[in-house]
Simulated assay, not measured.
Amino acid sequence: MPRSVATNLQMRERSRERILSAALEVFAQKGYEAASISDVTARAGVSRGLVGYYFASKRDLAAQLLDRWLDGIAGILEIPGTPDERLAGMIDGALMAAAMTLPVQRLAISLMMQPSTHGVFAEVETEKSGRMALVEDAIREVFAARGAADPAVEEMLLRATLEGVTVKLAIYPETFPLEPIRRRLYAGYGLPEPKEPLPVPSPPVDRLRAKP
């Protein structure tokens, strides 16, 4: 009996997801430049032809992963509440995303920072320009509602701070004290102290050191 259209679509989506998951693992392990399509096919357990069916190139694989990363950032548009509650939600959302999706965070950071791959990041960011502008405007609206003199500068500073936290967490996942940093951010913005800690590991404050 022929498979239904819905079943075929589900199988294709599973194959696509398996390839993307394998690509993320390979990029995280070897780095984007050193990784090859053959590495991805071997990790995913699929043929090169199947990878080519869904993704035109290694660059396309990375772009698709970055695309999802940027969509995750856009999740702040759905945070409800007062300006203070929305700002707290933005901080928590960014910290949770950093802690729980370190492989894709590392990929995004490496693509942004390396001159040879910065173009990949820039292309995806340009494609998502409209949605990213909505994110920027949402953050600026929160700061405007809180009485900031220059909401645009506050938006850029918040994003730079959170991105810096993400970089440090990606480098020092075993020693970065995420919860104390979160509470310091709350205090810096005059937000009420959070009632509960984030549900992710947070070592005590000591020194940032990479574990061998």
Rank of each mutant, 00 (worst) to 15 (best):
E154R: 10
S202G: 10
R209N: 05
R183A: 06
A145N: 10
G190Q: 12
A62N: 04
I79S: 09
L66E: 00
P192L: 11
V205Q: 09
V51D: 05
V124Y: 09
Y172T: 03
S129D: 06
M132E: 06
V205N: 05
K195C: 01
D150H: 10
T101K: 09
A62M: 04
N8V: 06
F55P: 05
P151T: 10
Y189L: 09
L9R: 15
K195T: 10
A23P: 00
E154W: 04
L20N: 03
A56T: 12
L111H: 02
L162W: 08
L102R: 15
A63F: 01
Y53C: 02
Y54R: 03
I109Q: 09
A160F: 11
I76P: 04
M1I: 08
R183P: 00
D137A: 15
M1D: 03
A22W: 07
R182D: 01
A133I: 01
K168A: 15
S110G: 08
T82P: 05
R68W: 12
E85P: 00
R183S: 02
T161M: 15
E196H: 10
E136A: 14
S4G: 14
S129T: 03
E127Y: 05
L111S: 04
P199M: 09
L169S: 01
V153M: 10
R140L: 03
N8Y: 07
E154T: 01
L198T: 02
L9N: 08
S36D: 05
S57K: 02
P151S: 13
M100S: 14
S38R: 14
S47Y: 09
D206P: 01
P151K: 13
P173W: 02
I91D: 05
Q64F: 03
P180T: 10
L157F: 12
V153D: 07
R183Q: 12
